[in-house]
Amino acid sequence: MATLDRNFEINKTEEEWRQVLTPEQFRVLRQHGTERAGTSPLDKQYGEGVYHCAACEQPLFTSDAKFNSGTGWPSFFSPIEGAIATTVDRSFFMTRVEVHCSRCGGHLGHVFEDGPAPTGQRYCMNGVSLKFEPAAS
């Protein structure tokens, strides 16, 4: 897991991001917001495929790493290698590890140490920051 580097492969101005993202995607991906639990259809998506960054289309997670955490957010036990970066989030009077897309810096969610084997990690992602691409049949 890499620490977030402010030099991204994809850099856009705030206005350019607003032109390509919905208002909710912009709030979550660019302003570190959180969607309400249970609002993303991706939480209950269990088909085979790949979850991409909604901002830059980088592949982030595969369906093989997805599990039902019961939290109301899509959850994964590991990302695709090199796809994410992290920072420390000290908002709301707590310390958490914030997960970002390594390509564009978009805020995806947080990672916790209470996930299933084999990693013991729970990547709790905002569904609005993801795009699901079903596997080809």
Rank of each mutant, 00 (worst) to 15 (best):
G115R: 00
W73I: 13
D43E: 14
H100P: 03
E98V: 12
T86N: 11
L21Q: 04
V99I: 13
I84N: 00
A83N: 04
R30D: 10
R27K: 15
E98A: 09
A85R: 01
Q121M: 14
F93P: 02
S78R: 12
A135C: 08
Q25H: 05
F93L: 12
A135W: 02
V111Q: 01
S63H: 09
A85W: 00
V97I: 15
Y46Q: 09
F112E: 01
L130A: 09
H52M: 04
G38W: 12
D89F: 10
M125R: 02
N68I: 08
G115H: 00
E24Y: 01
F77V: 03
E16K: 02
V50T: 15
Q25F: 06
F93D: 12
F93I: 10
G127P: 03
L108D: 01
P41G: 14
C56I: 14
A136M: 08
E48Y: 01
F92W: 14
F8H: 14
D64H: 10
R27Q: 12
S69M: 05
W17Q: 06
K131A: 12
T62V: 07
L4F: 07
S69I: 04
G72C: 10
S40G: 11
Q25Y: 10
C124G: 07
T39Q: 05
K66W: 00
M1F: 09
H107V: 09
Y123K: 04
W17P: 00
T22N: 14
P41I: 03
R103H: 10
P23G: 08
R90G: 02
R30E: 05
Q121H: 12
L29I: 11
P41S: 13
K12C: 03
E48D: 14
G120Y: 13
G49C: 05
I80L: 08
K66F: 02
V97K: 12
S78Y: 09
G70K: 15
R103G: 02
N126P: 03
E81N: 09
F76L: 06
Q19A: 14
L4R: 08
E14N: 11
E16Q: 15
Q121V: 03
A83P: 01
R30L: 09
G38K: 12
D89P: 11
V128F: 03
L4E: 02
Y123R: 05
C101K: 01
N11Y: 01
R30W: 00
A54N: 09
C56P: 05
L42N: 04
A136N: 14
M94K: 13
T22Y: 06
K12Q: 09
D64A: 13
N126G: 07
F26M: 08
A54T: 10
G72V: 08
T3A: 13
E81I: 08
